[in-house]
Nucleic acid binder design. Sequence first.
DNA 1: CAGTTATATAACTAATGTGGTATATTTAAA
DNA 2: TTTAAATATACCACATTAGTTATATAACTG
Lengths: 110, 110
Amino acid sequence: MMTTFEALADPTRRRILDLLRERPRLVGELVDLLEASQPLISKHLRVLREVGLVNVRQDAQRRRYELRPEPLAEIDAWLKTYRYLWEARYDRLESLLEELQEKEQKHGKD
Amino acid sequence: MMTTFEALADPTRRRILDLLRERPRLVGELVDLLEASQPLISKHLRVLREVGLVNVRQDAQRRRYELRPEPLAEIDAWLKTYRYLWEARYDRLESLLEELQEKEQKHGKD
DNA sequence: CAGTTATATAACTAATGTGGTATATTTAAA
DNA sequence: TTTAAATATACCACATTAGTTATATAACTG
């Protein structure tokens, strides 16, 4: 069985998630919107179900899939430990500016 | 060639990134720390290089790999469009608690 | 130079994933 | 109750990937 990261590695599955972000959808809608074969979409949906990224509700012979964002929060938590690295550049600039300002205040305008 | 998402799908590659987050490392260090074969690590590093997640600097016959976080920022940007979904729940909980507290204050302790 | 160290690459294997077509299953509708 | 619609599953082909071992490459060391 797949991990959330593996599930997200496939572009078709990411497009499915993007569509489900707007609202829940029937399998048929996804098939039309993604211009892919029905079995293919069903298989991707199965993967997404298995990693908990979607829920299904049965509505007669239709299945309505909806996004379940919890696993994305886990990914976000992993990413969070890296975030300072691309925010660092801004921080460094910021503290450099602070230093300069302090110097100005101490030295007065020379 | 791989996408950043695909590169992140492999757990060994994520462990490499976790180690490089601390500081740049030689290939040999990674081999020791991950208890994997040297060619395997080299291949994973090649993938990470190809998607721009690491840089290499040559130091005599050694190669020092360092993290390059920019591609992670892209992932973060994608995730960002989903973030409100799991923050919504927390917000709802938070405002529910606020409501309860307000009620307590009005009713006093009964 | 000869040998050693560090890393990359080639060639291979086994496993797995994506996509296709055909079919099963379930429910509604005629 | 037969038929149609919506979806899932089985089975197959192909490509790709993670891992292996053996070897190439390159730079330092004695």
